[in-house]
Design a binder for these strands. Sequence first.
RNA 1: GCCGCGUUCGUCUAACGGUUAGGACGCCAGGUUUUCAUCCUGGUAAUAGGGGUUCGAUUCCCCUACGUGGUACCA
Length: 496
Amino acid sequence: MNQEIRVRFAPSPTGGLHIGGVRTALFSYLFAKKNNGTFILRIEDTDQTRFVKGAEDYIVESLKWCGIEAEESPQNGGPYAPYRQSERKADYRKYAEKLVENGFAYYAFDTTDELTTMREEFKSTDNPSPQYDKSTRNKMKNSLTISEAETKELLDKNTPHVIRIKVPADEQIKFTDIIRGDIENDSNLLDDKVLLKADGMPTYHLAVVVDDYLMKISHVFRGEEWLPSAPIHVLLWRYLGWENLAPAWAHLPLILKPDGNGKLSKRDGERLGFPVFPIAWQDNIGFRELGFLPEAFVNMLAALGWNDGTDEEFFSMKDLLEKFDVKRINKAGAKFNFEKALWFNAEYIKKMSVDELLPFIKPELKKANLGAPDEELKKVLALVQDRINLLPDAVAEMEYFFRKPAEVDTEFLQSKWSDQHNDFYKSLIEKWQNTNWFKEDLENSFKELAAEKDVKLGAVMLPFRIMLVGGKFGPNVFSIAEQLGLAEVSQRIVYF
RNA sequence: GCCGCGUUCGUCUAACGGUUAGGACGCCAGGUUUUCAUCCUGGUAAUAGGGGUUCGAUUCCCCUACGUGGUACCA
């Protein structure tokens, strides 16, 4: 079998794209590239979702930020257009009707009220949610229970109706999942899923099968929540006569809430205080805005449910492209751990060269109205790089190199102050007029002076730092002094 | 309720049927840095329970428990 590898990612643009979706895209993309295949973006917009403004652009931009781009997509086009579900509307009815003709589906005219009534009627402790299936379909109003003539009449009169799949009795429906292996389902437990809704739009079940067929998709990655409906899709591929063209499925484990129960949802971000979107979506801040590096974000996602079998934890996109292997994707759901995500980010920041890092830092500085020539910025960045966990941290870490600290802990200074201090710093400035302006020389002369004056080093070091940077933080104080220059240092000294 | 999927430190995870069950995050302790962070060293902590199969089960099988997903004219 020398089939071309075509992997599609088909997000619904309803609510942006949360990290679970991004991970599905990432794994699909890696698998496609690893096998010299094509990665395809297909937008699963439906009657309701296509009206969410900007959602499609959002998905494209999110993926792009992560370094994922589709060869075929609504934007780039491709040989199997259209790439938006909503633009294929006319096709779906045709296929649904073909199924009816061949006896694999039927028209159902039941109203919502009638369905509710049926569910109420058959409800019991043993069966709290009765299905529209082989046990109930004969009691409902559909083309199986009414005459052909009556069906035709109802259709001619444009009576609202749906098309349902007729699930066979007593069959074991089998398929092989790439991640989970052989899966078997008893057809008696499946319900007659709606394929075409009363408004003429397909449900997910019909749409994916038709689209994947039309787009010659070979592999599908999707969330585990789709596993229970996979047998319906298997049936559809078979009934539509395309059984041996069906794609291979990989049902990815879910990303779960950190605090326990349920899969991570779009709402959890706000509740738990971390983003669930790659980049900002509507009112929600994204990982990008929080100050994540895209490579760190991608690495973190890949590590959630996948590893290469070694102790290595760092994978650039290039590494992933080389080492990714579907066989090593975990089966169990993973609780999302924001602490670890943060750690990945800090590690990436530390590992980058200042040249690589600067372009990410500059926009942050600009927001805080901080600017300087690149060479200056790089020198300072090198000094504080280790201290940055999230990109915007750079502002607080770098600010005092370029302007006098807005707030200085004067209370602390005064509590430790004595006349000795006034004398010491005054002499220091004088001494430094004739000192080589390198941190080592500054440190030596500082220590000499302290010895001369018989003051304890500890008594003058910390106040010195506080005067320069505003508080008890920052890198080596003499590196700071070196960077600041004599004029600025003497400006920042205060006397009480 | 029923069906599917799953289950190794608190979390993410590694371990051809033979390991003192490994790594990472977190946390704790010590060291370096006369600040804080980084960094270094060490510590903490796990095979859900019960039955099999086997000379030997984290690993294979069964049962139970628990978790999770589905059970929509949502995806």
